[in-house]
Design a protein around this nucleic acid. Structure first.
Length: 427
RNA sequence: GGCGUGGUGGCAGAGUGGUUGAAUGCACCGGUCUUGAAAACCGGCGGGCCCGAGAGGGUCUCGUGAGUUCGAAUCUCACCCACGCCGCCA
């Protein structure tokens, strides 16, 4: 949630800032916010003045009762003004409800330095690793998965539907190995607290991180309980400290979790439907940090570096993109995507997204900290990064590690976890 | 699922209609004392919003929402959550 006070102090600056998102509805929402906030404050002043008068009269009633003096005249005026206050309060509440609805649909302000434009304007910040030259035609992962017996997508579709992968044998073991490798890396080397959160969350949590109310169509919902399958562990992790005031000395808070993620991918039909690139259920190790606002830019670089370290240890060539204004997610102020090279499909695959949300999620989820003992609470800044998403990482591992004989060489870091340095075709 | 008990400030815990945003203790902050620390003593100490240049002032808030009343933490109703016992189940 954006800061309404910032909007009303300089509405034109707010409009200009949001215009960068190239999203008409965002500006429309902002227009409503400005008008509703004006009316809200006008009504609030009225209500409070009336209440102040009534409180004084009420105290006088109490005094007279104690002194056994008559108070009928006061009781009559209080009764009348009571109805007036009641009406004004109802008006105020309607305004606040409406204001909040619009506010929840306004995206975050972007950091100044990110490029303007749509996805085509995304900026390559750096590239790591060497794209391998093949002396044979590199095969796509779905062919490798078939010959190596790693996954069985038709049967996954039979059990559930398209986009619900079934991993088998060494493939299933590779998933488990990645989970252990990544959790060990982030907890032991990078200092994250390992967390195993619930996979179902309520509306308040999804509103806190920004998925609701706007993106309900992208979520799987359990109608009987009004709970949702998590689209990312970002949701439960960030909400752990919802409605809390943290001790400033405890920041930054760093948490890592391995969870499945569920996404309906509504509206993405026909795009990347083959293989493991776009699926409805996938595993991911997620990193979340709650930090002091003045450190959030350096924290953003740090969390990005943590995700990059995973790709480096997996020996996967990747590039880092700074997303352009028009391509940055609703809640994010600045996002770095990590894209691993996949020679089989011949493209860069997003395997991680590292974002700073500034105080946007903290306002929605009401996560604050006390900068010093007895000081006023302030909102934290929240950040997260995939560290990393499994299916596309597996795609990159298979397609980069493939040999002419059909086997796949695994990176050294994974060998102890998988128990072999090479995946061999089924005999 | 059934029956029962309960939800008060960072924690513990008073408070059953009238200056109670809330006693008291702990924790925390400042000070006195001390070579220093501890103890002791003195003082301070929830959060949101609004007005105000500021000083300051106002208002709301005792799980959430609605209601009764001139007035509610205190009464009524609904909902949510936690705990206990029973049932069911891994």
């Amino acid at each position: 949630m954006i800061d309404v006070r910032r909007v009303r102090q300089d509405p034109d600056a707010a409009r200009a800032a949001l215009a960068r998102r190239l999203d008409r509805t965002a500006l429309d929402q902002l227009g409503h916010v400005i008008e509703l906030e004006r009316r809200r404050r006008a009504t609030l002043v009225q209500v409070e003045q009336l209440q102040a008068a009534r409180n004084a009269q009420s105290a006088e009633v109490a005094r007279r009762k104690k002194a056994r003096e008559p108070a009928v005249d006061l009781l009559a005026t209080l009764k009348a003004s009571g109805e007036q206050v009641h009406q004004l309060e109802a008006d105020l509440k309607d305004l606040e409800t409406l204001l909040n609805e619009h506010l929840l649909n306004v995206p975050n302000f972007l950091l100044d330095h990110i490029p303007d434009g749509e996805a085509a304007a995304n900026r390559v910040v750096r590239t790591w690793g060497v794209v391998r030259e093949f002396d044979f035609r590199p095969r796509p992962h779905w062919e490798l998965g078939q010959t190596l017996g790693l996954f069985d997508l038709p049967r996954g579709a039979k059990i559930t539907g398209s986009g619900f992968p079934l991993f088998t044998g060494a493939g299933a073991r590779l998933v488990r190995a990645l989970a252990n490798f990544l959790l060990d890396l982030h907890t032991r080397e990078h200092g994250y607290l390992e967390v195993q959160p619930p996979f179902l969350v309520n509306r308040a949590s999804l509103t806190g991180t920004g998925q609701l109310p706007k993106f309900e169509d992208d979520l799987y919902r359990m109608a009987s309980d009004d709970l949702f399958l998590i689209p990312t562990a970002e949701v439960p992790l960030t909400n752990i400290h919802r409605d809390e005031i943290l001790d400033g000395a405890d920041l930054p808070i760093a948490m890592a979790a391995y969870t499945p993620c569920f996404r309906r991918e509504a509206g993405a039909h026909g795009k990347d439907t083959r293989g493991l690139i776009r699926v409805h259920q996938f595993d991911k190790v997620e990193l979340v940090r709650l930090v002091r606002p003045d450190t959030s830019e350096q924290e953003h670089r740090l969390i990005t570096a943590h995700a990059e370290k995973a790709l480096q240890l997996l020996n996967l060539p990747y590039r880092v993109l700074e997303l352009a204004a028009g391509d940055t997610g609703f809640a994010s102020a600045c996002t770095f995507d990590l894209e691993a090279w996949a020679p089989g499909v011949g493209g860069w695959l997003e395997v991680s997204s590292a974002s700073t949300f500034t105080d946007f999620q903290a306002r929605r989820a009401n996560i604050r900290f006390r900068p010093a003992p007895n000081a006023k609470p302030e909102f934290v800044h929240t950040l997260n990064a995939s560290g990393v998403a499994f299916p596309r990482t597996i795609v990159a591992l298979l397609e980069n590690g493939q040999q002419a004989d059909g086997s796949v060489v695994l990176p050294e870091a994974l060998v102890p976890y998988v128990g072999t340095d090479r995946l061999l075709p089924r005999s």
